[in-house]
Design a protein around this nucleic acid. Structure first.
Length: 253
DNA sequence: TCCATTTGACCATT
DNA sequence: AATGGTCAAATGGA
């Protein structure tokens, strides 16, 4: 695999520097004084990772292809503005009058996978399905099963690819704030249902019923960003040629 | 009874 | 007006 390492390092360095600035902003709660805005930093970080991933993807290696999304759902709306509307099934709270008063998601905190399986270990609940124009396959919408229990805002969209590869185009939005899944072992795997959308929280973590508060849902913004970079770094490492780069060389040195 | 899925309707965005 | 994302009632399975 031939990789333009210099270009990668430059792009990662830009991302690191921007991340540091953003981290300082978040830590010190420095208000935007006109020098650098949070939005600019976020955009720069995203573009930096885009550049890296484009270089990596150009190597055409591996079964799994992960690229950032730049063309999906461009909007200035924030997911935080989505009103909390509980399911009619629970009967806890139904803001019927506000139905549809939601905002489309930002594209910045999203990523794409093309994979032969839609299973990722997390428990997802399907909340919608749409026929998409010029596509034979419907798009399915999933949210984290722990959305109500832990306030986890992770979402994903799954659509079968048009070709005959039996692969799926998966778009993830947001990051899990619920407990991570138990790594699959040979013993555990056969206990999981076939469809990830039917994986219940008990399959993932049976202890949740006893201690629903042990989820770490109150992550600080700085920690959330660090988690994002950790995930991306693991992705880079999996490609193979960056094994000689340590995490400390990339992030938060 | 509880929870997940289905699916038509609603509504924001383009 | 078209499109796509989400809601929520209805339904079914465990």
């Amino acid at each position: 695999m031939e990789i333009n390492k210099k270009e990668l390092v430059e792009s990662l360095t830009r991302g690191r520097n921007s991340a540091k600035k953003l981290q300082n902003l978040l830590r010190q709660k420095v208000k935007d004084d006109g020098l650098v805005s949070v939005d600019d930093l976020v955009k720069e970080i995203s573009q930096s990772f885009n550049g890296c991933l484009l270089v990596l993807n150009s190597c055409n290696s591996g079964e799994l292809c992960r690229v950032p999304v730049s063309a999906h759902l461009n909007s200035a709306c924030s997911g935080d503005q989505i009103p909390e509307v509980y399911s009619g099934n629970t009967g806890k709270l139904a803001l019927k009058g506000r139905r549809g008063c939601y905002k489309r998601r930002k594209s910045i905190d999203s990523r794409v996978e093309v994979s032969g399986t839609i299973e990722d270990g997390y428990a997802w609940r399907k909340y919608g399905q749409k026929e998409i124009l010029n596509s034979n396959s419907p798009r399915c919408y999933f949210r984290c099963t722990h959305k109500q229990a832990h306030g986890c805002k992770a979402l994903k969209q799954v659509q079968k690819l048009e070709d005959r590869s039996n692969k799926f185009h998966i778009i993830y939005f947001g990051h899990h704030t619920c407990p991570p899944p138990i790594p699959n072992t040979g013993l555990d795997h056969h206990n999981l249902p076939n469809s990830p959308s039917t994986i219940t929280k008990n399959h993932i973590d049976p202890s949740l019923k006893q201690d629903p508060s042990a989820c770490g849902a109150q992550s600080s913004p700085a920690l959330v960003w660090k988690e994002i970079f950790l995930n991306e770094f693991e992705c880079f490492k999996n490609v193979g040629s960056l094994c000689d780069i340590s995490l400390d060389d990339i992030i938060f040195s």
